[in-house]
């Protein structure tokens, strides 16, 4: 083995330790429609990424490829050192480490808040019931709704439901959290309570990839902001530069639209 290739090997392995998510040349088609075009993105562990862009630009598709809710057709995606492929075992391993929060909460309406939170720890992690309950209560306290534990999701407000959804994901102790527009289905007065929880979470060393148009949140929390349009990453930069000095016309147009609406 030559010195050079050995070095390269070491670099590779340190890559996967250092990076939570690696996307290289990722393409995705829905039938004929080219939804993701040559996506290259490395997310360091504990990094906070905000993805924004106009509707239909492929933001959801991108983060849903990370936990294989959507399948990519070309390129490679490596999550926590595991390459995402057809292999179901790998996919399940990755999904256990990756939490996801959806725009419409997707809580289980037939289960109580507490049962929503304990379901995956019990059935996926095989945790004993008492321990799972205790842990779930801890996370429900963190999202400030322990008193709702025995209600059903349908009895809660949108903001409360989304906080339950965050607690439910955290109960799996994920290393990576994906957020797909977590506040866009909420009334303005509820957005704040959800963002507060997310900001608090950001202080805790977890990797976060958030699709959101909350620019205040991006400024406070993000290490990098990514702008997507037409299935491509058009621009990425740290938040200060991104907002002060956008490079591309499309970014400028988008920013002027969402900041002046």
């Amino acid at each position: 083995m030559t010195q050079k290739s050995k070095l390269k090997d070491e670099k590779m392995s340190s890559d996967s330790a250092e990076y939570s998510v690696i996307m290289r040349g990722v393409h995705k088609w829905y039938g004929q429609f080219h939804a993701l075009k040559n996506i290259n993105l490395n997310v360091r562990s504990a990094e906070k990424i905000v993805i924004c862009g106009p509707s239909g630009s492929g933001k959801s598709t991108l983060i849903r490829c990370i936990n294989r809710l959507e399948e990519h057709q070309k390129g490679e995606i490596i999550v926590d050192g595991i390459e995402i492929s057809r292999d179901l075992k790998n996919i399940e391993t990755v999904r256990r480490e990756v939490g996801m929060v959806f725009q419409h909460f997707n809580l289980f309406p037939h289960l109580t808040v507490l049962e929503n939170c304990t379901l995956a720890p019990i059935w996926v992690r095989k945790m004993p019931l008492a321990e799972a309950n205790e842990m779930a209560m801890k996370y429900l306290e963190r999202v400030k709704i322990p008193e709702q534990a025995n209600k059903y999701p349908g009895q809660l407000s949108g903001g409360q439901q989304q906080r339950v959804a965050i607690a439910r994901s955290l109960c799996m102790k994920p290393r990576i959290m994906l957020f797909d527009e977590p506040t866009s289905a909420l009334d303005p007065e509820m957005i704040k309570e959800v963002l507060e929880v997310m900001i608090q979470l950001a202080g805790e060393g977890i990797t976060m990839i958030c699709v959101t148009h909350e620019m205040g949140f991006a400024r406070t929390v993000a290490d990098r902001v990514i702008f997507m349009d037409g299935g491509e990453i058009v621009e990425h930069n740290n938040p200060d530069e991104f907002f002060r000095n956008p490079q591309h016309e499309r970014t400028k147009l988008f920013l002027s639209q969402i900041l002046n609406h």
Partner: peptide, 10 residues
């Protein structure tokens, strides 16, 4: 969304 939430938990 129910299927997706279930899938996303592994």
């Amino acid at each position: 969304g129910q299927f997706e939430a279930a899938d996303s938990m592994g």
